[in-house]
Design a protein around this nucleic acid. Structure first.
Lengths: 237, 237
DNA sequence: CGGTTTTTTGAAAGGGCTCAAGATCCGTGG
DNA sequence: CCACGGATCTTGAGCCCTTTCAAAAAACCG
């Protein structure tokens, strides 16, 4: 709710509808599998605590991390159209999820055009973010991809209402980051070292510090404008 | 409307709402710029005829094609959250677009929960498609990426209600395909030749034929399940 | 404190890129 | 209907970023 509230004012009725999404809680430990690819997508989730990620294997044995889910994110909204899950979901750290039924959205769609518009926008925003990621993964070298990934991560965390300074706890192994960016864990390691040597980042004991944010931005043409959405066309209620 | 009707039955009221999206027409010639990155996103489009594509430049001089838009597709729905366009849009072939105002969606959201759910699903489906594309671009070699791209293209065209056999007219240069897949036009050319030599495809005079669809699928782990959506949770009206 | 998961580092191989240049295709104007 | 110029397709050679394979050091967890 903190995250959604970041974008627009919510009426009381809308707050009540949203509360229904966080009634239940499920606890997971790092490396736990939340759901396997191919399972019926009965429920969606809201991330309450911790980091999660969606991933799938390729026949070649390579793994792709499709998304990283942070506190406040919805999990599975984009797969709602599929009868079966399109990829696995696991916990990147210890964490808590709130599951709710697909049909919960039906209620929102019927009762609150404004909240619907907001959900639609969240979905759309997610796509803009993914698009940006595709651009980085598809066209940049290792240093650029990492810079882009870190900046996007910071940007997303800042929105969820958490206090984020220049440092965060990175709840992902270098291998996992590699699978997110289409790189080998090994090469992630080498590139990370390079970025450190150049004074752009600092990384120790799982804590990542952006020493030179401007320098990182220059490396990957990052533009943070995505995170304020245009609500001018929203219905009033 | 043919495309949306592919997914679910539309009531009369919904058909009327949709008709409003195709009132105007704009004609473009191959290579025309439809809209530039940074422009205010006043209107969205429906593709009536021809192929279009969204693209952006990187500081390195490389170009990324974010999406290819085919007849029946909406253009710009995912960017509706941004006040400004996130990338350029150009015509890949001669074609016709139907522009309509952002606020057209407001009407849909307010009047028809069912149509709203459908639009939301289209958006979500698009994301599943893009996710799949990311997986290919991020983790497969050139042959796999091309195979995946072609199969996805065929699959999308089949849904739009057009009659598609084993051949289509490919309205994209090899360079453009390269920019879509994170490859050089030159390397696309070489790989295309390789695929031909192996009897998987045939390509001449801009017409692409999938000679061995199963072979291509094996190359890229393609799964076409995405194109039937789950409407079980849709509101009734 | 022992086992597992991560991080590091080295050396060699490979897929895709760059640079270059010719061949083709195609729309346009005469 | 033909000629011209730009776009697109081809092909060759050498280079570079990233991957592989291997193995040791560190860090983490119960």
């Amino acid at each position: 709710m903190a995250k959604l509230g970041h974008y627009t004012d919510l009426g009381n009725a809308d707050r009540l509808l949203l509360q229904d999404f966080e009634k239940e809680e499920l606890t997971f430990k790092k490396r736990d599998l939340v759901r396997r690819e191919g399972e019926p997508t009965r429920s969606l989730f809201v991330v309450k605590r911790g980091w999660f990620f969606g991933h799938s294997m390729l026949p070649s044995g390579k793994r792709q991390v499709h998304r990283v889910f942070l506190p406040g994110d919805f999990i599975g909204t984009h797969e709602i159209v599929c009868a079966e899950a399109t990829y696995d979901i696991s916990a990147a750290s210890d964490g808590v999820l709130c599951p709710f039924d697909k049909s919960g959205l039906k209620v929102v769609f019927t009762r609150s055009p404004r909240l619907t518009a907001l959900l639609y926008s969240i979905e759309a925003l997610d796509q803009v973010t993914q698009d940006d990621r595709l651009r980085a993964v598809s066209r940049m070298d290792a240093a650029g991809r990492l810079a882009h990934f870190f900046l996007q991560m910071f940007s997303r965390l800042r929105i969820s209402g958490e206090q984020v300074g220049r440092s965060i706890r990175l709840e992902m192994s270098q291998e996992l980051i590699g699978d997110t960016l289409g790189l080998t864990g090994i090469h992630v390691n080498r590139t990370l070292k390079q970025l450190s040597d150049e004074g752009l980042i600092e990384l120790s004991a799982g804590v990542l510090t952006l020493t030179d944010e401007a320098g990182l931005k220059a490396l990957c043409d990052f533009d943070d404008m995505h995170y304020r959405i245009d609500t001018s066309w929203f219905p009033d209620t």
